[in-house]
């Protein structure tokens, strides 16, 4: 099953959350103010942030209007509310009508860009595409070596210069190489940067400009890698990178731990950008297209209905 990995990856998540939710939805629990407060807290632990409060407020409204009376009706309500917020959140990779599709990968330090690139390259390669990667993280020590090792393992080409080189120059070379070699997908790595570092964000804007000069409608995709364990700051990251680099999709990385990735909901309130992939493990194959339903279900633990031992 396609979502098997996601489910097993999120199992821990579910178990953790289940103890909270199942306690709430346990038999005989009345829907009252205490219940709502506890529910809000449980939602906070999944990094839903203020979105959690809003959903609880909606629930309270519905309760007061007597549309909902029992705690047993709450899970369905939550599921609906969460899914509604993820509407339009799924999306597949864009493909250039002709020639090379350029994918620029951006994100803050340590979010998992290089690993996600390797996984994405692997995915595209296994679909039969010709893939090239550009080692645009010329800042961090040995980042070029890290991507080179991945390229070697996957048997794909890499365009690189030394550490300290101008990342825009690497991007330029990579685009030129991709065109002349008839590459289907060029994936460009960039150095991690905090969205508050103005000069580094300017540098990113320059990379985008240089890419456009080589291939006018590129980058066709600018994917921002978000660490799934990040809290509410993820929203600021998405806003800032969106502004500077024109992000077209998100990759939610490191979703195989106990983190819930709930920040996605907060992001959706601010930026209209889909989540395209989700990283669910350490192995090279652990990158899956994002799907809203299993994501929400995994968070709320509705599939399976395993024993709810608190």
């Amino acid at each position: 099953m396609v979502f098997g990995k996601l489910f097993s990856g999120l199992r821990k998540t579910r178990e953790k959350l289940a103890s909270g939710l199942s306690r709430l939805f346990g038999r005989g629990r009345k829907l009252d103010a205490d219940f709502l407060e506890e529910l809000e807290e449980v939602l906070y632990t999944s990094d839903l942030g203020p979105t959690g409060s809003k959903i609880v407020a909606e629930l309270e409204q519905a309760w007061k209007k007597r549309e909902i009376a029992e705690t047993t009706e709450v899970p369905a309500f939550l599921r609906k509310a969460l899914l509604a917020r993820l509407e339009g959140c799924e999306g597949s990779l864009v493909k250039a009508p002709t020639g090379t599709t350029v994918i620029l990968v951006v994100g803050v330090n340590g979010s998992g860009k290089t690993t996600s690139i390797a996984k994405l390259a692997r995915r595209l390669q296994s679909e039969g595409h010709k893939v090239l990667v550009g080692a645009g993280d010329t800042f961090r020590a040995a980042a070029v070596e890290q991507l080179s090792l991945w390229a070697e393992r996957l048997g794909i080409d890499i365009i690189k210069q030394g550490t300290g080189a101008d990342p825009a120059a690497v991007a330029f070379d990579a685009c030129a190489a991709a065109r002349s070699r008839g590459i289907d997908y060029l994936i460009l790595d960039t150095a991690g940067r905090l969205h508050t570092q103005k000069n580094l964000m300017d540098e990113l804007a320059k990379v985008v400009r240089v890419v456009k000069k080589q291939i006018p409608d590129a980058p066709h995709e600018t994917l921002q890698v978000l660490d799934g364990t990040t809290g509410q700051n993820a929203i600021r990251q998405a806003e800032e990178f969106g502004k500077v680099a024109g992000v077209t999709g998100l990759i939610l990385a490191k979703m195989d731990g106990t983190a819930k990735g709930g920040a996605v909901f907060g992001i959706r309130e601010k930026v209209d950008v889909p989540v395209k992939f989700i990283g669910v493990g350490e192995s090279i194959d652990d990158l899956e297209p994002f799907a809203a339903e299993p994501f929400v279900d995994a968070i709320l633990k509705f599939e399976g209905q395993e024993t709810a031992s608190a």
């Binding site: 906070y44 999944s46 364990t229 993820a234 990251q237 731990g257 106990t258 983190a259 819930k260």
Partner: peptide
């Protein structure tokens, strides 16, 4: 510890 961590920080 990454200062951007969310609620899961305490679990890990």
């Amino acid at each position: 510890c990454d200062s951007m961590l969310g609620q899961d920080a305490v679990n890990s």
